[in-house]
Design a binder for these strands. Sequence first.
DNA 1: TATTGTTATACTCTATAACTATA
DNA 2: TATAGTTATAGAGTATAACAATA
Lengths: 147, 147
Amino acid sequence: MGDLDWGLLSNSVGPRVRLLRNNLNARSIAASDPFGLPTGSLTLMSLIAQNPGSSQKELADKAGITGPGLVSLVDELEKRELVRRDRSTTDRRRNMLVLTEKGEETVAEMFKVVSQIEAPIREELSPQELEQLISLIDRVLKALGEG
Amino acid sequence: MGDLDWGLLSNSVGPRVRLLRNNLNARSIAASDPFGLPTGSLTLMSLIAQNPGSSQKELADKAGITGPGLVSLVDELEKRELVRRDRSTTDRRRNMLVLTEKGEETVAEMFKVVSQIEAPIREELSPQELEQLISLIDRVLKALGEG
DNA sequence: TATTGTTATACTCTATAACTATA
DNA sequence: TATAGTTATAGAGTATAACAATA
């Protein structure tokens, strides 16, 4: 397939990142389909599970979703009783998001399925190389202000 | 900003790649704005410059764009007289794409501007680390069938 | 029958502006 | 005056299906 040369962009990460993101996104949609949840649901629920009580703004920043994007995502997850919005008592503007029991179960199930998406990556790269890749990406993200 | 933990997805590249792509995409839009060309123009023109005479299908595959997406992109670039569609004489279904002189000049100008997008990356990473990052991504892309 | 390019169409993702309620 | 969340809206990116021309 790919016997074309990137040319001027041989040392650019941008085009490659778009290719990679599109591929993973397509796989994610296919894998998430049985759950009937929008893309990003697992990412968001995983963040909530690890950081319960976070505000929507904190989660939106970390997940790289805009405010309105997060609202509709949480709306859907709340309707499905996977996530709960608890108003903070100390600052009543904030929602403290937490997973319901059903949410915890769903995260576990989804993770089993969705993590298979990256199986080809774990086959191609050694554990050290995968760690290296993630570490390099994290440093780049931080340098771009997405820490 | 980012003192939340990825949790279950600590070893997943998917969410990070989406963050990275969104950030670079936003910068790309801002940087390309003065040229009034759609996103992906530089990528496509750079591919054509390096592989003149390629068919639209070959370019679409390499750039990770669907057929219809490429058509509208080429339409725009052709209207601006940056790219020419030459019908192949041996297989008259194929368009052999080539840059015009104006296209060559525009690519050079755009590259100077757009390459600045990744300057923070080149500041954060040593040349060896950047090479490593690109090499790892290319291997992952190949493993995912995006060679 | 298969392939290249095209048209038409729809859906998802993301972004922005304006509003509310709290602080 | 500023911040968290919400609503409404628009735009870009991507996808699929159906079609024409050619192989």
